[in-house]
């Protein structure tokens, strides 16, 4: 691959370009940095004008995420945020895993065993993502109500799976399309059954694609607010919903607390992206860097 870079005349940028890239990166990263800084500020520091960049950090906000008193002077009580974090992780992870499992199989099918009107099917699958969620939310809410799916884990997981599926199918199909059919034929000649051609030859070649699809799906699901607001109950509430509810209050918004929730909320996304970064980098370039 290194040879390929040289052949195409791609060179490492000089300090000028690197510096420019750094400035742009900081501009993009600044809001995130601001949130993280605010999470470590006291209420007064958080509201100070001009904004403070040097201050005594405190972790009181992080403690308050999980235990705080709702009325001044009363005993601090459990806020339930541990559960909400668990809910977010559980719901996102399971729906992405399910969508990825079904989506990968479907994508392989669409890619390798096309039906008559294959593209039509793919288009129909995509149309399920064309309506803005707000348009379908009332029918979905009613359907889930009648079916007894609202309020529990099953309902919201089902919905998120359905949301991730078209995206997983399309993305994984593009990765399968890029593989050489000869390699799979070679496996057939070498004695592999169709199942093993898929599991031993095709699937290992799209690991980068799986990682990229998983991360995109996770972020999408992790941040979803609207359906979570309507379809989760008290025990199955996810972090974005709980966060929104924290904004309300009689003594103004507690920015430090919100920032602390937000900071904790970022951690899983960063961890997953970090763990998968090698695969991800290959995945998100969508094969523009040739083997």
């Amino acid at each position: 691959m290194a040879k390929g870079y040289r052949a195409r005349g791609v060179r490492q940028g000089g300090w000028g370009r690197t510096g420019l890239a750094a400035v742009v990166s900081v501009a993009y990263f600044f809001p995130v940095l601001w949130i993280i800084l605010t999470a470590f500020k006291t209420h007064n520091d958080a509201l100070a004008t001009p904004p403070k960049f040097l201050f005594h950090p405190t972790i009181e906000n992080f403690i308050a995420v999980f235990r705080r008193s709702y009325i001044k002077g009363f005993e601090a009580v459990d806020t339930g945020f541990a559960l909400f974090f668990f809910n977010s992780i559980f719901v996102s992870a399971s729906s992405v895993v399910i969508a990825l499992a079904i989506g990968t199989l479907a994508a392989y099918g669409f890619s390798r065993f096309p039906l008559r009107g294959n593209d039509t099917y793919l288009f129909i699958i995509l149309t399920t993502r064309m309506l803005p969620p707000i348009v379908v939310i009332i029918p979905i809410f009613l359907m889930f109500r009648v079916a007894g799916l609202s309020g529990g884990y099953a309902g919201v997981m089902l919905l998120y799976t359905a949301f991730n599926l078209p995206f997983a199918i399309w993305m994984m199909k593009s990765f399968f399309d890029e593989l050489s059919g000869d390699v799979e034929d070679a496996a057939r000649v070498d004695g592999s059954s169709e199942t093993r051609v898929f599991s031993r030859v095709a699937l290992p070649q799209v690991r980068a694609g799986l990682a990229a699809t998983a991360v995109f799906g996770l972020i999408l699901t992790w941040n979803e607010f609207l359906f979570a607001l309507l379809l989760t109950g008290v025990g199955t509430r996810t972090v974005p919903v709980a966060m929104a509810q924290t904004i309300g209050g009689d003594i103004g918004v507690r920015w430090g607390l919100l920032a602390a929730i937000e900071t904790l909320f970022l951690v899983p996304v960063i961890v997953v992206s970090f763990l998968l970064q090698h695969q991800l980098l290959r995945g998100v370039t969508f094969g523009t860097i040739k083997r």
């Binding site: 070679a186 496996a187 000649v189 070649q205 083997r291």
Partner: peptide, 30 residues
């Protein structure tokens, strides 16, 4: 599968995710 015929493809069609050793061993493992 099971025709017992070897084939060499124009594109070589080696298994990119496997080492040379595992490429060679593949038909025997199957």
């Amino acid at each position: 599968q099971g025709r017992g015929i070897g084939m060499i493809f124009q594109t070589f069609a080696l298994y990119p995710h496997l080492t040379v050793h595992d490429n060679l061993a593949y038909p025997l493992r199957e």
